[in-house]
Amino acid sequence: MGEEFQASKPIYMQIVDRISQQIIRKELSPGDKLPSVRDMAVHAGVNPNTIQRTYQELERMEVVMSKRGQGTFVTQDEEILLMLKTNMQNEIFASFVSNLKELGLSNKEMINGLEKYLREENK
């Protein structure tokens, strides 16, 4: 069956995130067609109405465009794609930073810590 979903977040938003990630990673290129609602539903093991909501949300974010009778396409507007990337980055930074702040780390300690972590991970 489809992937697991977290309990605390609506399923449609979790799929929005997944598709956004695929776009940022260039697994989906600008101008690519998204699977039909039904195919997407079958693939994810999710209610078609949920996928419909996912696509509506992506459209509201202007990340995708639906063309009547043809399907849903990833936008070719580079500015929006850049913004999507930045937004997602910021979202992750925000939660990362707030978590570390709860541990009482200063900004400097965070940067140093991160650099050290990355060095070790790359070894």
């Binding site: 979903f5 309990a7 977040k9 609506p10 399923i11 449609y12 949920t50 909501r53």
Partner: peptide, 11 residues
């Protein structure tokens, strides 16, 4: 199902 997640954060 989605509302329950949105409003109460529950599955």
């Amino acid at each position: 199902v989605e509302e329950l997640r949105e409003k109460e954060g529950l599955s």
